[in-house]
Amino acid sequence: MIPIESESKTKDGTPVVYISKENLIPFMKEKKDEGYDMLLMVTGVDYVDHLEVVYHLLSTKDGRRLLVKTKTDEEVDSVTGIWPGANWHERETYDLVGIRFRNHPNLKRILLPEGWVGHPLRKNYPMDKKQYVNLGEDGEDKVSYDPKEGY
């Protein structure tokens, strides 16, 4: 039995469990065995003083739902080994919120071009500092702060 830090409920009645980030992988394995066979999404939330990762789980057998939350400081273990579908969701969370997932097979930016500076969904992301993208010689994206360098 893996210790749960605390429990609560969302407004629509889904149970929420908080788990420490060391226990995340064993806990998720246990939940998968309990029947939560689908990972709906991975969310990163920036609470300014800390980051939080939220996993939405669903059991397609009986329709139970569960939210698993874990507090982190930019790094947490990847769950791609348990649900292969986590791959893109974790890449997106890395891209937009800047949470690095350990042991992820291909942790690269997914929505923004490679080379983008910063993670836009952080609360302190500078929205007024524009970045410009252009195609490099090799056909990949090139990012710079110079408006003459791209669009």
Partner: peptide, 10 residues
């Protein structure tokens, strides 16, 4: 037109 698409449009 997103920044990633703009060079391709050009």
């Amino acid at each position: 037109v997103t920044k990633k698409m703009a060079p391709r449009i050009r």
